[in-house]
Design a protein around this nucleic acid. Structure first.
Length: 480
DNA sequence: ATGTAC
């Protein structure tokens, strides 16, 4: 067990720090952070988690932490770890997180900020009526085919949603994996998970999930912004949500199975929350099949919320046309090919609170975006800025970057520091319309409970993980 | 994140 007290970070550059191998670590840790972010990440147990992840069988190159890293279940949130699947590499549900395929999409409208202004209150009210949110059941899509149709969602994700008329084919061209991964295995999804998922397709959930009406307030890379269709004052809608109770139940189910079967593979880990099995094992295949089903559910979820958003936008503004810029997950494991020591290997890349950031001209990119690199959507904390980044040619951490601001204060501490009523007043007086659920839910997401998103994305750019394209400021927030 | 514990 590596203890926090013995961990020492060695400065490689002002934006990149190394945790040297020691004890059972198979690879070093690499932490991307500025001097200003360092105390925040040393303040919790996330460094210890970076070191623990470095002990996993088959891990290659390094256990990475993004600048928004913070403590999580087993793996840190903001962690990236890749294992060599043909060399005993493992897959671990803790490296994906409970909210499988949690992610973000950004819709871009033809309106500018001043054109929306007279319609903003109507738009927020229309969104408030149409966007199911908060914990528990409720979703915009009532699956008339019941569990049988849910299985279609698990196989087809956003593709199935569009097939059923909930969106247009162009949406799919702007989704990671064109809206669905092919490896989903609904047979590995428990009845309980299915039951939880049945009534939640098209819902935000709670916690840090949100839907925001935003406007571009800064452009950092004119050429990329032009390719992405973003200009100053342009209005967009950002949707941040995941796979709700279904993903959570799948993670719980699979962790239990893995913890009970690890001994068969002779694997020992320094933390029981790092339960894992070889990718090439029956349990590994079961997890990846169930995880893919949850991933598709998450993509369908964001697609249905897009449809509801378009309806609200049309009603309130009389304008149609909310084009999808991109949809990308930040909680997922994927089998990808990457060079390791000069040889191309098949790796199981775990990104937990970390976003894939493909470089310009990568074959998986939509052809019309390829020159700019993959759009990376980074939601900031409530009431602050969000960013659009783009993948860089060199990248690092298997082409990954940050996923958000990163929490620094516990929900409990945030509740002690401010009331929901106070926070709502602060946001409204800053000109941000709020449509929330509970006072408590608002208070837990207070901006001071998070790192400075400007510092986080600035660090990503300086470290070469991604480059800044545009910043968006909220005009209105629908809070889960 | 999560029918915020089965």
């Amino acid at each position: 067990m590596v203890t926090a007290a013995t961990l020492t970070l060695v400065e490689e550059t002002p934006y990149r720090w190394r945790l040297d191998r020691r004890g059972a670590m198979r690879v070093p840790g690499i932490v991307f952070a500025t001097q200003r972010l360092l105390p925040e990440l040393v303040g919790d147990r996330s460094l210890e988690q970076v070191a623990n992840v470095a002990t996993l069988p088959g891990i290659v190159v390094a256990s990475y932490a993004m600048p928004d890293v913070h403590w999580g279940y087993g793996f840190p949130i903001g962690g990236v770890a890749a294992t060599d699947v043909d060399d005993g590499g493992v897959v671990s549900p803790g490296g994906v997180g409970f909210d499988i395929s949690c992610g973000v999409r950004l819709l871009v409208s033809p309106l500018l900020r001043h054109e929306l202004r007279p319609h903003l209150a109507d738009l927020m009210d229309a969104l408030s009526r149409r966007i199911p949110r908060g914990p528990g059941p409720g979703g915009v899509w009532h699956l008339s085919g019941g569990l049988r149709e849910l299985e279609e969602v698990l196989r087809g994700g956003a593709r199935y949603a569009v097939e059923r008329g909930h969106g247009v084919p162009r949406d799919l061209s702007r989704c990671e994996d064109q809206g669905a991964v092919d490896e989903a295995n609904p047979a590995q999804v428990s009845v309980r998970a299915l039951q939880r998922g049945l009534g939640q397709v098209g819902s935000l959930g709670s916690g840090n999930h949100f839907l925001e009406v935003q406007a571009v307030d800064a452009v950092f890379d004119e050429a990329a912004a032009d390719i992405f269709g973003l200009r100053i004052d342009q209005v967009g809608v950002m949707i941040h949500c995941g796979s709700r109770g279904l993903g959570h139940q799948i993670c719980s189910d699979q962790v239990r199975v893995m913890a009970a079967s690890m001994w068969r593979y002779g694997i020992s880990v320094p933390d029981p929350q790092l339960a894992c099995v070889p990718v090439r094992s029956p349990e590994g295949a079961a997890y990846l099949g169930a995880m893919a089903a949850a991933a598709n559910y998450g993509r369908a979820n964001r697609q249905l919320l897009t449809e509801a958003t378009r309806e609200a936008f049309g009603l309130a503004t009389g304008t149609s046309g909310l084009d999808l810029l991109y949809d990308v997950s930040h909680n997922l494991a994927k089998l990808e090919r990457h060079p390791v020591d000069g040889t191309e290997r098949v790796l199981c890349v775990h990104r937990k609170g970390a976003t894939r950031a493909l470089p310009p001209l990568h074959p998986e990119l939509p052809p019309d975006l390829a020159r700019a690199g993959q759009p990376v959507l980074v939601p900031g904390s409530m009431g602050t800025a969000s960013y659009v980044l783009a993948g860089t040619r060199d990248g690092a951490a298997f082409h990954s970057t940050c996923h958000g601001a990163g929490r620094v204060m516990s929900r409990h501490a945030a509740l002690r520091a401010i009331t929901g009523r106070e926070l709502r007043q602060e946001l409204e007086s800053a000109g941000i319309a709020v449509r929330g659920t509970t006072q408590r839910g608002l208070a837990e997401e207070a901006p001071f409970a998070y790192k400075d998103v400007d510092e986080v994305v600035g660090c990503c750019e300086l470290a070469g993980l991604a480059r800044r394209v545009a910043r968006l400021r909220p005009l209105g927030v629908v809070k889960g």
